[in-house]
Design a protein around this nucleic acid. Structure first.
Length: 565
RNA sequence: CGGGGCGUAGCGCAGUCUGGUUAGCGCACCUGCCUUGGGAGCAGGGGGCCGGAGGUUCGAAUCCUCUCGCCCCGACCA
């Protein structure tokens, strides 16, 4: 490919709207342009990267026996109404009406349509298992598109779906996908972790996410360096730091106007971890819940949500109404309202604590959990860096990550409402057991840049680079240079190596800068002086290492380097 | 949806507070000369409804009101 014929609009300056490294470099490198918030144009270079990534995905999906198909992006409402998601999903779904006033929506995912197809075409246990996937556009009216291509309103997703006869089959399909994902992300040159994740509203029991470390990410994971435990912090557990129990009598103490753990602990000259922090929450259906965490802990909103569903903190006057005492003095002992559900952090289970006395200006000391109050015990605390792994005791690390893929066990959440059933050996009608599995190819590209760049630009992993090699004839009007470039390009073509030749009649400095910025892994530099010595240079973009070789050996040389990488 | 910031040439910005010639700078672009191993130099040139609408004023990029867009933090993220 000739540089002069390709649209590669590189930028010397950083566009003001870009923050994330991958975003900046994709714009500067001439990979993408923004049309509107969360809507991007893929320029030729980026399309090549996406094709490389998608090719890897197709190869690995095919390896596990999945079949590619393609589904509409415009859906009738009825299918979504059957699973209840037409109502459950809010503004995030693009909705429209067709000319006959029929409700339609734009695909934000394809569980419904895949299941619809399965319901028509899969009838017997003999048809199972099946794995279907597509690489298709999804549309979501994101509340906040951000970080360039990382969170957009329209994006390509590889989504696959498994259809099995039973849980055993689902387990197998799930594991096949996990293995395929490991191969895909490894081949793409990424550092990544498979972590336990929230099955959440997707339904089902088990879910994992594939996470690529990067500061530009939106999630945090906890990782144990010793035993390999890894989980999204939304459900990560750790050993709570243990503090020796401070002996104290069970008694009320006067704490005038002392409300927060900080204030009371200072006033009573006690450590925050000797306190019970009490928070009154109101669930979606209006029921009060008292959440208890240790004074040195914070309540994890997501973890709490798994237990009680959506909720909000109680307002000040609600606290008085429900508990008969002002915020700051509430606690689990001697509650006026005995009907309240109490959920406590497991770290509070033993020891003696101080907490609100449910009486204005008073706290209680010497509270002995399970003696003085009853509660449901759950892990509801936010975990912190360096807390101990619950499996092996080694310190945990917290890492910011980009979610590049996820896998869900769906079970029958979609097959039952859409009547995707099959006849088993006994002739009984049974719902198909499903799984769904996603990869964001553009996020893979962005994560690759986040993980592979320097002050000069992108450094693509060879497998997903838009071109493996860029040929830089420094002076195209020099005849010898042009001849050497021609023969090197022919040799590269013969070897099946894709290359970009910078045939522009411009100063060498610009070629070097653009080559570094666009991040093609190998540069073959053809300079008039070096050529007189019968040599060209081959530069490794990542290591900056330069090797001189005869022009007719250059293609071989690069080919060998590619194998090593 | 809440909080903050920003809209002036393709890109990056100054000018706005304190209204007043023809709106300016760097890069990019076009022409010519020169130059060819890390975004050169000289000379000449083109390009602006100052996001939009309304208002105040003799006069608005600048002041006021409304509106649209983009970015960041948070909420949300099936």
């Amino acid at each position: 490919m000739r540089y002069s014929k390709m649209l590669i609009p590189t930028l010397k300056e950083t566009p003001s709207e870009a923050e994330a490294v991958s975003h900046v470099l994709m714009i500067r490198g001439g990979y993408i342009r923004q049309l509107a918030a969360g809507l991007y144009i893929s320029l030729p270079l980026f399309l090549r990267v996406m094709e490389k990534i998608n090719t890897i995905i197709r190869q690995e999906m095919s390896r596990i026996g999945a079949q590619e198909l393609s589904m509409p992006v415009l859906h009738p409402a009825e299918v979504w109404q059957k699973t209840g998601r037409w109502e459950a999903i809010g503004d995030e779904m693009f909705r429209l009406k067709d000319r006959t006033d029929r409700d339609m929506c734009l695909a934000m995912t394809h569980e419904e349509i895949m299941t619809w197809l399965a319901a028509r075409e899969l009838r017997s246990y003999r048809d199972l298992p099946q794995m279907w996937y597509q690489i298709q556009t999804k549309l979501r009216d994101e509340a906040r598109p951000k970080s360039g291509i990382l969170r957009t309103r329209e994006f390509i997703m590889k989504d696959s779906y498994s259809f099995d006869a039973d849980e055993e089959g689902l387990k197998k399909s799930y594991e096949l996908h996990a293995h395929a994902y490991h191969r895909i992300f490894t081949r793409a040159g990424l550092i990544f972790y498979q972590v336990e994740s929230d099955p959440g509203m997707m339904g089902g029991t088990t879910a994992h996410e594939f996470m690529a470390p990067s500061e530009a990410g939106e999630d945090d994971i906890a990782i144990c360096g010793r035993c390999g435990y890894a989980a999204n912090v939304e459900l990560a557990v750790s050993v709570a730091p243990v503090h020796p129990t401070v002996d104290m009598p069970f008694e009320e103490v006067h704490t005038p106007d002392m409300r927060t753990v900080g204030e009371v602990s200072q006033y009573l000259k006690m450590q925050p971890h000797s306190f019970i922090k009490s928070l009154l929450l109101i669930t979606k259906d209006g029921k009060p819940v008292l959440a208890l965490v240790r004074g040195d802990e914070e309540l994890h909103e997501k973890k709490m949500q798994y237990i009680i569903g959506l909720y909000r903190p109680a307002h000040k006057d609600e606290i008085v109404d429900i508990l008969g005492v002002e915020a700051g003095f509430i606690g689990p002992v001697n509650m006026k309202n005995k009907e309240i559900r109490v959920i406590a952090s497991t770290s509070l289970k033993s020891g003696l604590y101080a907490g609100g006395a449910n009486k204005k200006d008073y706290h209680l000391k010497g509270i002995n959990p399970e003696v003085h109050f009853q509660a449901e015990w759950h892990d509801i605390r936010v975990i912190h860096e360096n807390e101990k792994c619950v499996i092996c005791g080694a310190p945990l690390r917290i890492q910011r990550v980009i979610e590049i893929g996820n896998i869900f066990k769906l079970g029958t959440k979609y097959s039952v409402p859409l009547n995707a059933v099959y006849l088993n050996k006994d002739g009984a009608e049974v719902p198909i057991i499903m799984g769904s599995y996603g990869i964001g190819p553009a996020r893979v590209a962005a994560a690759a840049i986040e993980q592979n760049h320097d002050e000069n630009g992108i450094i693509w992993p060879v497998a997903i680079a838009p071109f493996a090699v860029t040929v830089l004839p420094l002076n195209v009007s020099d005849e010898e240079t042009a001849k050497a470039a021609d023969s090197i390009c022919s040799a590269l073509t013969a070897k099946g190596i894709d290359y970009l030749i910078d045939d522009r009649d411009i100063r060498p400095g610009i070629k070097f800068k653009d080559a570094d910025l666009t991040g093609i892994p190998f540069q073959i530099v053809i300079g008039a002086k070096t050529l007189k010595e019968g040599l060209v240079e081959i530069k490794n973009r990542r290591t900056k290492e330069t090797t001189k070789t005869a022009p007719d050996e250059a293609a071989d040389f690069v080919s060998n380097l590619m194998i090593v990488m």
